[in-house]
Computed example of a mutant assay.
Amino acid sequence: MFSRIKTRVAAALAAFSFLASSLVVTPLLNAQTDESASRHSLEGAWWVTVTQYNCSTGAKRPPFSSMLLFSRGGTLTETTSNPGFLPGQRSVGFGTWSRSEHQTYSASDVAYIQFTGNGFTQGTQKLIHSITLDRDADSFTDEATVQFSDSTGAVLMSGCASATGTRLQ
């Protein structure tokens, strides 16, 4: 009888040991899988060169840089060095992104224009992006529309922008 109890205890310990090791290893495997998957998606931080242009005439303005962060779950955070804004005039932008097709993504984000000045009226700036990731997933191209609205939501002006992004390493 004692040997049967000893065998049952040994079997229970072996099962518990296997289960415990599975619980430890599974998150590590999932983390590695998620990390690998994100490297081949838009997920991550990007250094972006933006060129605004007149949608009708194609007339371009000088380029400037922005930074975009595409987070797991589909959220987007961005900031810009656009010299058209006065210091402190524009907030950080927040938005969402999703995969449209293979290597193609859509995104939109909104930033507050905190005060009127330098040709901008207090309200919001909304960007709608169509992003194509390159084959190696280390750069992208972006065609975007830009819309400025006042604090009531009335559209005041709009434009277009093209951009290229490089993944931050």
Rank of each mutant, 00 (worst) to 15 (best):
T164L: 01
G44A: 12
S139F: 14
K60Y: 05
P27N: 08
A31P: 00
W97V: 08
S22K: 01
D142I: 01
G73D: 12
G117W: 07
A154T: 13
S130C: 02
A144I: 12
C160H: 02
L133W: 12
T152P: 05
L19S: 15
S98A: 09
C160G: 06
A144N: 14
R167A: 10
Q122S: 11
R8W: 08
S17T: 03
T57R: 05
T166C: 04
W46Q: 03
A137I: 02
Q32V: 05
D134L: 15
F16R: 04
Y112A: 13
L168M: 06
G123Y: 12
R167F: 09
F85V: 04
S71H: 12
M67K: 06
E35N: 15
L68G: 02
A45K: 13
V146N: 04
T51Q: 11
F16V: 11
L28M: 11
S151Y: 11
T166A: 11
V110C: 13
Q52L: 01
L86G: 01
C55D: 11
Q122T: 02
G93Q: 09
S130K: 09
Q122G: 03
R99W: 06
R167P: 13
W97K: 05
F120V: 04
Q114V: 07
W46P: 05
A31D: 10
T152F: 05
A11V: 03
R99S: 14
F70S: 11
Y53F: 15
A20C: 10
Q125L: 13
T75S: 14
V9F: 10
M157K: 11
Q147T: 15
L19V: 15
N118Y: 01
R39Y: 11
S91R: 00
V9H: 02
L156Y: 04
L69Q: 11
F140P: 10
V48S: 04
T77Y: 06
T166L: 08
T166E: 14
S98G: 02
A163V: 09
S130D: 06
T80G: 07
S108M: 02
V146D: 05
S98K: 10
R135Y: 13
T26G: 05
S149H: 09
W46F: 06
D34Y: 05
L168N: 08
S41T: 15
V9K: 11
G93C: 10
C160A: 02
A10M: 09
T7W: 04
